[in-house]
Design a protein around this nucleic acid. Structure first.
Length: 412
RNA sequence: CGGGCUGUCGUAUACCGGUAGUACGCAUGCUUUGGGAGCAUGUUGACUGGGUUCAAUUCCCAGCAGCCCGACCA
């Protein structure tokens, strides 16, 4: 894409009223636009990142048999009354609205109820199980305090997956597969080194649930890390386990601030029972379907990447989720640069081509801020040196690459 | 929901009880081009409502909005 045609502009300075780094950098770079606290628009650069994160998640969930759907945002209160989650006193994050005839509706906060209900028409036998169903869908939550840019939103996309099983043993097997898929997702998105499988409170139905917590000072949670096992314990259960690692008994745990980037949970029959999702087993006995649920917020994941991977000049995107692979800067050499742009594009390399009539300093500053992994400079100087200059965003030194070799260097 | 801080051009800021200045941006022209250029001309602003006052953007109150802390948060 030509940067001269990109409708967004970077800001010379970050917005003064934002303190969180992800909000400052993403707004300054033109990735997102703030409509109001906790409500953001995704602009071309930001959407490219978001879509790449979503694509990684989709691949991993498909890889363990997930079937993608897209459920509605407007929800029927009747289902929520059956599970006692319609009452604002019980579940206080609803945005509620009404039909013209005054019938109440809810805006989706999550989808256990509608999906469980929907499956009553499709699951009736043990032969129909197991199933894993997911979607990327907009959730609305009336948070009393939206905060920290993309870290806690009032409107956000969630990848929520739900699995359906004949018994707990099968749920447990699938739960382990999901755990592995989640580990891959955070690794591929560039947060593997910072993300810990974390034991958290499981509520009434199981002892612990698992969160995936990424270390960052922008986080809302305190976790205790066991370096030996590479797992962590959420503060909410640390007293229960007497400050010891649940895996190895290690009592030298390290306290860290972290953000929950994913959560996996065994629901068992919590929703299938009140909503009547049952199946007939081999003996002809009707049983409740056993469920699990698994969530990731792609926008929070994006915010976490920005919080953790940047320097004083701007964002440093991991290659897998960068908006473009290469940022081609022309310093008054648009004709020469255009050829390189065409070659790279033809080879399938995603390039942002800075063909704007700006000074070198502005182009470098924007490139650092936007944080695309490879910067290619075409200038009088680079041409004299034999071609183009290539520098990785996370490295200091640039190297000269002959123009004829640039496609080979940038191709993955 | 409790507490703290803050609302001035598009952005970042200054000053002030007597109607607002700077920088960047934007427009035009010329000169510039390896780390946010120069000159000239032009362009844009006090969150809303009430109160005090001869006079309020400035002081007071309320509302709204934003940020932060806490509470909350599958």
């Amino acid at each position: 894409m030509k940067q001269s045609e990109l409708f967004t502009k970077t800001l010379r300075e970050a917005p003064a009223d934002e303190q969180s780094y992800n909000a400052r950098a993403l707004i300054q770079g033109g990735f997102i636009n703030k409509e109001m606290a906790g409500v953001y628009d995704f602009l071309p650069l930001g959407l490219r990142v978001l879509n790449k994160i979503i694509a990684i998640i989709r691949e991993e969930i498909n890889g363990i048999g997930g079937q993608e759907t897209f459920l509605a945002s407007l929800q029927n209160p009747e289902l929520w009354k059956k599970t006692n989650r319609w009452d604002d006193a019980v579940y206080d994050v609803w945005f509620k609205t009404k039909l013209k005839n005054d019938t109440e509706l809810g805006l989706a906060t999550t989808h256990e109820e509608p999906l469980t209900n929907l499956l009553r028409r499709h699951i009736s036998s043990y032969k129909d199980l197991p199933k894993s169903i997911y979607h990327f869908q907009t959730k609305f939550r009336n948070e009393t305090r939206a905060k920290s840019g993309l870290m806690r939103l009032r409107e956000f996309i969630m990848k929520d997956a739900y699995s359906f099983h004949a018994d707990e043993e099968d749920l447990n097997d699938y739960y382990e597969k999901m755990k592995a898929a989640y580990t891959n997702i955070f690794k591929r998105a560039g947060l593997g080194h910072l993300t810990y499988l974390t034991f958290a409170s499981g509520g009434t139905f199981s002892k612990y649930s698992h969160e995936f917590q990424a270390l960052t000072s922008a986080g809302e949670d305190i976790i205790y890390i066991c370096e030996k096992c590479r797992v962590a314990l959420n503060r909410e259960i640390i007293e229960d386990v007497q400050h010891k690692c649940t895996e190895c008994g290690n009592d030298k745990l390290k306290e860290e601030k972290a953000v929950e980037v994913g959560n996996i949970f065994k629901l068992k029959t919590k929703y299938s029972r009140p909503l009547g999702l049952v199946f007939m087993d081999e003996e002809g006995v009707s049983k409740d379907v056993v469920m699990g649920c698994y969530g990731i917020g792609p926008q929070r994941l994006m915010g976490t990447v920005v919080e953790t991977l940047h320097d004083e000049k701007g964002i440093i995107w991991p290659e897998a989720i960068a908006p473009f692979r290469a940022h081609l800067l022309s310093l008054n050499k648009n004709d020469e640069a255009k050829k390189i742009y065409d070659d790279l594009s033809a080879a399938g390399v995603e390039v942002l081509f800075d063909d704007r009539e700006l000074t070198a300093g502005e182009k470098f500053a924007d490139a650092d801020l936007i944080g695309i992994p490879y910067r290619i400079v075409v200038s009088e100087k680079s041409i004299k040196a034999g071609g183009v200059e290539v520098k990785k965003r996370n490295e200091k030194e640039a190297k000269i690459v002959e123009t004829k070799d640039i496609v080979a260097v940038l191709k993955q």
